[in-house]
Design a protein around this nucleic acid. Structure first.
Length: 399
RNA sequence: GUGGGUGUAGCUCAGAUGGUUAGAGUACCAGGUUGUGGCCCUGGGGGUCGAGGGUUCGAAUCCCUUCAUCCACCCCA
């Protein structure tokens, strides 16, 4: 029979590697608890409409990267390409905005994007994400960034570059859009078809067009940061004040825009330098209009996503080692059928007592059983043969 | 979507200019030690040379096609 391969851009986590994931997940749970975030879980697929409206129908993610299909009932369904839209949907649907605010939640979830795989880029990857609803204050921004920073440090990752920017709000965005249109309009005839569409629908997207020619034109476009309204400028200033006070090093990078439409005001990234070209480990920002966009009451929010696969790449590249899980406390070797049955009973009793115990199940020779015990990293071994059966005693050997 | 690299044993890889039964290391199994792991020695099993087609007396090697994979652009986590 022919082998069936794993789908392009996906990865198995094999038994000898899974402890690394457990380690990361443990630190996620500890850190989020310390910061007061609770877990939320939500489905792997949603109505396509959620992402069209939430993420934005002019984004690359929505335009060419979604796994979208019709189910047997004729509904358009999409495998989630990111987590925030689903969380907001759930918050609105379950009326969580009416509970105690701020509402602080986190998730660990696979997300799906149809892209060309390369180092650090998969079609299915896993994100640790955090969302905070109800606070419009830059202090909430600072707290979310501090959570990412604390989490990464607990994992032993430092040396990431933290970049922040502000892309304005609904008040100042029109002025910036006007500036962008004014800049791009004279050159729009030379730009691609998508850009012509973007000029009217979402000028911000003009900044990250893939076409070389468009990209060149966009390089000298006006910067968001020069067009902030007083409120946004003040928000951004105070965020920096908070970060300075908390001792979190960052730089302001006016080029970061983010590829999702829902962001307002603060956007930020944590970028690694040693895992190849796809180096953004954490990306996030504020989205003060998203809850309304998805049918809820006006509720500010913000969050981030951290790519777990990239995190593990950084961990490995930095030479950080994670302690591997311990082997069994006791390995019972046996010679002959009579002793074999006794060994089977013994490991069973030990396990009932909460002691990890193993024995050979392949009928190996004693020598091979010892090798096997060594491979399992057993801490102690006991050998049972006829002598031990008769004397009802056995020697325990410390490996 | 565009460009480049690579596909030979479970894994990491040798196999110039085509030439008999395709190799090494490692892992696995067995023996050396008839009841004791790690180190060492000996032996063993394991391959449609990614797939399909072509050239040739003869192809892992040359040509075409295709698939997979890696890296980069771009975008993102």
């Amino acid at each position: 029979m022919q082998k069936i391969q794993i789908p392009k851009g996906t990865k198995d986590v094999l038994p000898d590697q899974v402890y690394l994931w457990h380690h990361v997940e443990q630190i996620i749970r500890d850190t989020t608890r310390h910061f007061g975030f609770s877990e939320i879980r939500f489905p792997a697929f949603e109505h396509t409409e959620l992402f069209l409206r939430g993420v934005g129908d002019t984004t690359d993610i929505v335009q060419k990267e979604m796994y979208t299909f019709l189910d047997k009932g004729g509904r358009s369904i999409t495998l989630r390409p990111e987590g925030t839209a689903s969380v907001v949907r759930s918050v609105v649907e379950n009326g969580l905005y009416a509970g105690t605010l701020p509402l602080k939640v986190y998730y660990i979830a696979p997300v799906f994007r149809y892209e060309r795989p390369q180092a650090g880029r998969l079609r299915e990857h896993h994100q640790f994400g955090v969302e905070c609803f109800g606070s419009a204050s830059p202090e909430a921004d600072a707290e979310v960034i501090a959570l990412a920073d604390t989490f990464l440090r607990r994992l032993g990752i430092d040396g990431l570059t933290v970049s922040i920017n502000s892309i304005g709000c609904s008040a100042c965005r029109p002025m910036y859009h006007a500036a962008l249109k004014e800049y791009f309009a004279p050159q729009i005839d030379d730009m691609c078809r998508n850009c012509k569409e973007r000029l009217e629908k979402n000028p911000l997207r003009l900044l990250d067009c893939k076409e070389d020619h468009c990209h060149a034109i966009a390089k000298d476009a006006p910067k968001t940061i020069d067009y902030l309204c007083d409120e946004c400028a003040e928000h951004f200033d105070y965020l920096q004040c908070c970060l300075d006070a908390m001792g979190i090093a960052y730089k302001v990078d006016s080029r970061i825009v983010r590829g999702l439409d829902y962001y307002t005001k603060t956007v930020f990234e944590f970028v690694a330098s040693n895992i190849g070209a796809q180096a953004t480990v954490c990306g996030g920002g504020r989205y003060d209009k998203l809850v309304e966009t998805l049918g809820g009451p006006a509720t500010p929010g913000l969050g981030f996503g951290i790519g777990i696969e990239r995190l593990l790449m950084v961990l490995e590249a930095s030479g950080k080692t994670v302690e591997a899980p311990p082997g069994p406390s006791i390995f019972i070797g046996s010679i002959g059928d009579r002793a074999g049955l006794a060994a089977q009973v013994l490991v069973c009793r030990l396990r009932q007592l909460g002691i990890s115990a193993q024995r050979d199940l392949l009928g190996r020779s004693l020598k091979a059983q010892m090798k096997y015990a060594d491979k399992l990293k057993a801490k102690n071994t006991i050998i049972i043969g006829d002598n031990e059966m008769d004397e009802k005693s056995a020697m325990m050997k410390n490996m």
